[in-house]
Design a binder for these strands. Sequence first.
DNA 1: ATAAACCGCCGTCAGACGTA
DNA 2: TACGTCTGACGGCGGTTTAT
Length: 350
Amino acid sequence: MDGSIDDKSEDSPSSSGSSQPQNLSTVVHTITAVPTAIPNQPVQVQSVIQPTQQSVIQAAGQIQTVQVEEDGEGHLVRTDTDIGIEKRREILSRRPSYRKILNELSSAEAPGIAKIEEDKEEEAAITSIQTTIPSYVQTSECTEPSSHLPIIYGPPVPLPSARMQDHSKVQGIGDTSQDSSSFKKVTAGQTIQIAAANQNELTTQGLQTITMTNAGQGAVTAAAMPAGTTIVQYTQGDGSQQFVTVPVSISPAGEVQAYQIRAPSSLPAGVVMATPTGITSPQQLAEESARKRELRLMKNREAARECRRRKKEYVKCLETRVAVLEQQNKTLIEELKSLKELYCHKAETE
DNA sequence: ATAAACCGCCGTCAGACGTA
DNA sequence: TACGTCTGACGGCGGTTTAT
């Protein structure tokens, strides 16, 4: 008996994600697993547990050491030991974020597997990849066994340009200079060409045009848009349209007061922020607070979206894990059974 | 056909937590 | 300590299913 229970072929249709199941536990050498959501595609275990092998299973904030030992009589005995009560308390006190959980899963089970990128790395990844890979493709290997893409968590909407964010100041509506102190007045409704420090970068990756449309004049339907706000529409390099709400005061002469449009790193992807200069009146303060609220809501919207996406992925990951563990359990039971039979048969012959 | 139940998604709020 | 982020909870909305 070589410990191999299932001798399925290596190229089963569901084996595309063999790298992922390997990460699930060090106990099982090669497992081909599919989420329970896919029926009639059995989880395959090609090489099963070895005595005295130890694995750490981390899921849903639970840390457990699974120790499998041979008791000297051919019986496999599993003993569970906690990894530090402190640690467990720490985990139970506040559930870690889905990002953290997935990161832990990834790092504990597969050093090679890509982790969920941190925010800074996200931006870098977005710069290089996001514009070419649709967001729905960018998913963890845990949930998409067939995917060999790195885990990249990005916003659903491609960025205008991450590099633009780095430059951080696409400034001076209509102003192509790099001097942030010089802002020019423009007339509402006109199309503005935005320039960056490196024009080539901008035209190939980022913003191309911005059209300022005065929502108050009915040019654009803007429900629940605070008074004085204006929708800034810009066209991305891929031709898709993006909209940003910007508070703008129109002077009697029909001029837009100077605003600095920038994209601070703290903002969600695709969001630029307009900072008014020289606001003093109560009305302007109210507008400013309304703008801040809009911004906050926008960011929270985005955060909620991301949170839900992570949660979904986490749940999928857990489902996969359940499938694998169930199969593992089944295999162990079968192995125990066969060993018992073998033992009994041996005892009879002697 | 239609009302009710169910489900999934979304936006918002509140509170906990992390960080500069 | 102020601010930003994350996430549970809540309610609304639209689509689908089911019973009548």
